[in-house]
């Protein structure tokens, strides 16, 4: 029998030792997405405005953030700005992930808003609604629904990208795996544990988004 250099029985044994790290991963992801959604909605709407005072900053934000790596953005926030403001590592990770995702979510919202037929806005205006009312009551509810599938995709990317917070010393799953790997000399085993954690979390997230999609779908056809 071949003697493998790995001890896979360590996987179930050490698995519970990653709970706290997984919780941190979930926290960064959750609050990062929350910040991203708010930033995304605001900049998505600004991006659609005809007023250059509104759309130019939005375009610049999306251009810069999508055009540079998240890892660099995290380092700028945590290490780079240290002389200006000292941000703790957790808030820095959340802010970084939020700002990064905001740019992508802005584009998702913009696409979804633009995909709502022109006639919807026209019908709303023809009833005497203001542009704001038409947006809030008629266009946004339809756009939100259409943005659910791409948002689900973005949330999964965000969850996995939260592993980059390890680079600014947040003891989330990946950093925990590296530390445990070094101390136990079982690097592959520890990395596989976090692999399982990520897979479990993305699977649950996927199922959740599928559920939401289904729920929203039926709401239009309910008799």
């Amino acid at each position: 029998m071949i003697d493998l250099p790995w001890d896979f029985t360590a996987i179930p044994r050490f698995f519970p030792g990653f709970y706290a790290a997984a919780l941190l991963t979930l926290q960064i992801t959750f609050f990062g997405i929350l910040v991203g959604l708010i930033l995304g909605l605001v900049t998505g709407l600004m991006r659609l405005s005809k007023n250059p005072i509104l759309n130019m900053p939005a375009k610049a934000y999306i251009w810069v953030i999508r055009g540079t790596p998240l890892l660099l953005q995290l380092m700028i926030i945590y290490y780079g700005l240290i002389d200006l403001v000292s941000i703790d590592r957790m808030p820095a990770a959340i802010l970084g992930l939020g700002v990064h995702n905001g740019a992508y979510i802005a584009e998702i919202f913009r696409g979804a808003i633009q995909s709502v037929e022109r006639g919807q806005r026209e019908a709303a205006l023809s009833l005497g609604m203001t542009e704001t009312q038409a947006m809030r009551r008629i266009i946004l509810p339809q756009a939100f629904k259409r943005s659910v599938p791409p948002l689900g995709n973005q949330f999964i990317i965000a969850l996995k990208d939260s592993s980059l917070a390890s680079a600014i010393a947040v003891r989330e799953l990946l950093l925990r795996a590296r530390q445990m790997g070094s101390s136990t000399l079982m690097m592959l085993e520890m990395l596989m544990i976090v692999g399982v954690y990520y897979l479990l979390m993305t699977t649950v997230l996927n199922l959740l988004m599928g559920r939401i999609e289904k729920l929203l779908e039926v709401s239009d056809y309910k008799d």
């Binding site: 006639g119 919807q120 026209e122 019908a123 709303a124 008629i138 339809q142 629904k145 709401s219 239009d220």
Partner: peptide, 9 residues
């Protein structure tokens, strides 16, 4: 309108 433009939601 020609295409009704009812609010589907």
């Amino acid at each position: 309108f020609q295409h009704f433009n009812l609010f589907p939601h």
